[in-house]
């Protein structure tokens, strides 16, 4: 017998995967718009962001309906909580992509500025983290989460390094300040995207293990209750 409850869960998961796919594409396109100085790609990122917004609303509506109708417990309950949070994180990654795309459009109006090598590295790691977080969700693989969470520390380190490097360059060459500030914002957006990937990974861990590992404070789902 095919249970109606399974059908509702399947639809929520499918919409999450669609969001993940769009987010991944938008983030990668925003980075390409920046590195290839492509205004059209940047404009496409902004245009597609409305789809992400719409999918997030749909997922949240479906989650509310599921909770109201099914009164979920155990894995179903955790999935509903996590689905809404992951949708929120994906939507925010989409917003970071839009901000990067807008920065790209601004920078494309200016003479090219030699970009620090580590911006490419930061972008690659951030995109990989988003992909791996989603892969953990799809594969139901919370055991891969700790490694991903650790990578966020590398992102933070690169972020700090790039900040210092760009500030040094601005001090040495004030004429680049306007462009360098845009680049600093891009760096910040990439770092935030990695943060959201980390959040998604932590949510996947909670889904699979019923343990909350946010804030470096592992805590079983039922701890402190009852």
């Amino acid at each position: 017998m095919k249970l109606h409850i399974e059908e509702e869960i399947r639809r929520i998961k499918e919409n999450l995967l669609m969001m993940a796919s769009l987010t991944d594409r938008n983030l990668a396109q925003a980075i390409r718009a920046l590195t290839e100085r492509d205004d059209q790609l940047a404009a496409a990122v902004e245009a597609e962001d409305t789809q992400l917004d719409s999918l997030q609303v749909t997922i949240d509506e479906d989650v509310v309906m599921f909770i109201a109708k099914q009164r979920p417990v155990a894995t179903d309950l955790r999935l509903m909580i996590v689905a809404s949070k992951i949708a929120g994180d994906l939507e925010r990654i989409g917003d970071q992509a839009v901000s990067i795309a807008r920065a790209a459009i601004q920078l494309n109006r200016e003479p090219p500025l030699e970009m620090p090598v580590d911006i490419d590295r930061l972008a690659s790691i951030s995109v990989e983290m988003v992909r791996e977080a989603i892969a953990c969700f799809v594969d139901g693989a919370p055991e891969r989460v700790p490694a991903l969470v650790q990578r966020d520390k590398l992102v933070d380190a690169i972020n700090r390094q790039l900040f210092g490097e760009l500030v040094d360059r601005m001090e040495a060459e004030p004429s680049i300040i306007r462009r360098a500030v845009h680049l600093l914002l891009v760096v910040r957006r990439l770092e935030r995207a990695a943060d959201h990937a980390k959040n998604i990974a932590e949510e996947v861990y909670y889904l699979g293990k019923a343990v909350d590992i946010r804030h470096s404070n592992p805590r079983p789902a039922d701890q402190g209750k009852n």
């Binding site: 409850i5 099914q70 417990v73 155990a74 309950l77």
Partner: peptide
């Protein structure tokens, strides 16, 4: 077990299947 745990994180699949209506 403690009710909160049984209903949030049951230890056995049979329990999970039952309380989730499977």
């Amino acid at each position: 077990g403690e009710t909160m745990r049984v209903f949030t994180n049951p230890a056995h699949k049979q329990t999970e299947d039952y309380i989730t209506g499977r």
